Computed example of a mutant assay.
Amino acid sequence: MNTLFELYQHLGWTLSLLVIGVFLMAGVVKGVIGLGLPTVAMGLLGMAMLPTQAAALLIIPATVTNVWQLAAGGQLQALIRRLWPMLVLIFLGTGLGTLWLGMGSDQSMSRVLGGVLALYALSGLFLPPLHVAPRHEVWLGPLCGLITGVVTSATGLFVIPAVPYLQALGLDRNQLVQALGLSFTVSTLALAAGLYWRGVLGGGEIGASVLALAPALLGMMLGQWLRQRISAVLFKRVFFVGMGLLGLHLLLG
Rank of each mutant, 00 (worst) to 15 (best):
residue 175 Q to V: 08
residue 166 L to A: 12
residue 173 R to W: 00
residue 157 L to N: 10
residue 156 G to Q: 11
residue 166 L to G: 10
residue 175 Q to R: 14
residue 176 L to C: 08
residue 157 L to R: 10
residue 156 G to F: 02
residue 191 L to S: 12
residue 181 G to N: 04
residue 176 L to F: 01
residue 189 L to K: 05
residue 192 A to N: 07
residue 180 L to F: 04
residue 158 F to Q: 15
residue 170 G to K: 07
residue 193 A to T: 05
residue 169 L to F: 04
residue 169 L to T: 13
residue 176 L to M: 11
residue 177 V to E: 12
residue 193 A to K: 05
residue 194 G to K: 01
residue 162 A to Q: 15
residue 166 L to D: 11
residue 158 F to G: 15
residue 171 L to Q: 02
residue 158 F to Y: 15
residue 174 N to I: 09
residue 187 S to C: 04
residue 188 T to L: 07
residue 161 P to Y: 02
residue 173 R to A: 14
residue 170 G to L: 06
residue 183 S to V: 15
residue 174 N to S: 14
residue 179 A to Q: 01
residue 170 G to F: 00
residue 167 Q to T: 08
residue 158 F to V: 09
residue 185 T to E: 00
residue 165 Y to L: 11
residue 186 V to T: 14
residue 188 T to S: 06
residue 182 L to R: 03
residue 177 V to K: 15
residue 181 G to E: 06
residue 170 G to I: 06
residue 161 P to S: 14
residue 190 A to G: 04
residue 161 P to V: 03
residue 169 L to A: 13
residue 174 N to Q: 14
residue 194 G to N: 05
residue 192 A to C: 03
residue 185 T to K: 03
residue 161 P to F: 03
residue 189 L to D: 09
residue 182 L to A: 04
residue 161 P to A: 13
residue 160 I to R: 09
residue 172 D to I: 10
residue 162 A to K: 03
residue 157 L to S: 10
residue 162 A to E: 09
residue 167 Q to G: 10
residue 173 R to L: 11
residue 168 A to K: 10
residue 165 Y to N: 13
residue 169 L to Y: 05
residue 163 V to N: 12
residue 187 S to K: 04
residue 183 S to M: 12
